[in-house]
Design a protein around this nucleic acid. Structure first.
Lengths: 167, 167
DNA sequence: CGAAACTTTCAGGTTTTATTGAAACACAAT
DNA sequence: ATTGTGTTTCAATAAAACCTGAAAGTTTCG
């Protein structure tokens, strides 16, 4: 397989994967581009590589900065801004985990905590609701803890423990 | 908090969470409804509770059946079909993990394996691409193993190991 | 200050995805 | 074969998400 082909396939595939990680397609493609680039890229270059508009590029770069997986670089003597991606897969995963925990898990936990205070009027329905909510809450809390550990963990330590699990 | 209110909040929140798990909103809401229902529900009842059309209900119920987290029930002597959800949170999570692994992780792994055969022409770009792909592949494979273990694991065994990790 | 270089915003347009509702289909009972 | 009951399909429509490009904003420098 030739370089250009490989690059395009990777950007494409990364776009899809990113999508299922909660990014959007363009965001993920910009990210892929930065991942495999040997040097920081300017907005201009990104627009050109992916054939997207300035506005689109700008908004998605901002979103990536927001997620904390891309950073701004200035090159001395140049006005333009350049961008580079965090390239370490492990920190990347941690960062994504951190954001998703904040954006998704925390809100549902909040609701579950509220809802778990439904007054027990003794009816079947209420009993079932309370039971389900309690289980969901337990599960969500365990996941939250696990995520937190993951986020704080050192790579080697984490994978070593996991590998033990897998045996 | 009163029952009706709690129920609505839960359905709402579950809708959002489901969305970030790869289901769509309606699908997740139907699921929430079945989770807290004390008995199987018919299409009719679901339509009514969520104020959605017959077609919509039908399609999303089918999608839930497809994901394997809802099942069809027939009640003897009745023509109508009823549906109930798998209520155990743990099997639910396993089932979702199984599907997402199939739908998301496997495709990217396939691409990474292909792309990792990019011919090494000695250029900077190619070198970087190969490096990144190698790392991603390693990560994806580890995740794949972890997921597989999760899918096959017994609840108690899994959480016990995890809890050890957390300490 | 004023112009050049660059970035950000946002109203409007496009594409994608989800929903409706009516028609077609399936099947059992008469 | 017809009717009653329920399910599935799908073209049309609506809603949501996304992208564009030009205009407005910002910063730097002579």
């Amino acid at each position: 397989m030739k370089y250009t082909e490989a690059k395009e396939e990777l950007i494409q595939a990364w776009g899809n994967l990113g999508y299922s990680w909660g990014l959007n397609k363009t965001m993920a493609q910009i990210h892929a581009l930065l991942m495999i680039s040997t040097k920081p890229l300017s907005t201009e270059e990104i627009m050109q590589e992916l054939a997207i508009s300035r506005g689109n590029a700008n908004m998605n770069i901002r979103a990536l900065l927001d997620w904390g997986i891309v950073s701004r670089i200035s090159i001395p003597g140049e006005r333009k801004e350049y961008f580079k991606s965090e390239k370490d897969v492990w920190s990347l995963a941690r960062q994504v985990a951190r954001e998703r925990r904040k954006r998704e898990l925390e809100p549902i936990l909040k609701v579950l905590r509220e809802v778990s205070e439904v007054s027990n009027d003794g009816s079947e329905e209420t009993k079932e609701l309370r039971k389900v909510v309690k289980e969901l809450k337990g599960f969500a809390e365990k996941s939250d803890n696990l995520l937190e550990t993951f986020i704080k963990a050192e790579e080697s330590w984490f994978w070593n423990s996991i590998i033990k699990l897998l045996k």
